[in-house]
Computed example of a mutant assay.
Amino acid sequence: MPQYALPGANQPHKTHPTGPSLKPRHGRWYIPVVAAIGLGFAGYNYYQEARSRREFAMAEEEKRLARNQQLMDAYGNKDSIHDVQHALDTYRAR
């Protein structure tokens, strides 16, 4: 069957327009939007974790200072024999 017998066979091939596409392309924004959301989520998690670490460190520092103060109260002043005896009694109690 010759080519000219088919309907539409005599029409030349249509080429795509060289300008911008007529349909919207949302796919090109997908990766940057997902990356921005991921970076925001990671930043928020890092901030929360850093704040938690800072609060934990402050609580530990308060415990350490309280313990040091207890030790200074027990062993710190050794001007008299009574203070030395009190320190030895405290040491033996532990």
Rank of each mutant, 00 (worst) to 15 (best):
V33Y: 01
A87I: 03
Q85W: 01
L65P: 03
E55W: 02
L39I: 09
F41C: 07
M72K: 09
P20S: 11
E55R: 10
G43R: 07
G76A: 06
N77C: 14
L88D: 11
Q11R: 06
N77D: 13
R25S: 00
H82N: 09
Y47M: 08
P7T: 05
S80Y: 05
A42C: 04
P24F: 00
K14E: 05
A42I: 04
T90N: 14
P7I: 08
K78E: 11
Q3P: 06
S52Q: 15
A5M: 13
A57H: 04
G19K: 00
Q69S: 12
H16G: 04
F56Q: 07
N45G: 06
A74N: 08
I81C: 05
E62G: 06
S21D: 03
A35Y: 05
H26Y: 11
E61D: 07
R67T: 05
G43S: 14
V34T: 02
Y91A: 15
G40K: 02
I81Q: 08
K78Q: 15
T15V: 10
Y4P: 01
H86S: 09
G40P: 00
Y4W: 13
F56N: 06
E49V: 12
R67W: 09
I81N: 10
L88K: 12
R54T: 12
V34F: 01
T15D: 07
H13E: 11
Y46V: 12
T18N: 10
P7N: 14
A5Y: 08
P32D: 02
Q3T: 11
I31W: 01
D89M: 08
Y4V: 11
H86Y: 04
L71K: 11
H13Y: 06
A42D: 01
A87S: 13
Y30T: 09
A66L: 14
P17D: 10
Y91T: 10
A36N: 05
Q70A: 14
R94D: 13
A66Q: 09
I37D: 02
G27Q: 07
A74D: 07
I31T: 07
R51S: 07
P12E: 11
H16V: 08
Q85L: 10
P2Q: 09
Y47D: 03
R67M: 14
Y30I: 07
T15S: 10
K23T: 00
A57E: 12
P20F: 06
E55C: 01
I31Q: 03
P12Y: 03
H26R: 05
G43M: 05
R54P: 00
A9S: 15
R51T: 13
L65W: 09
P24Q: 04
K23D: 00
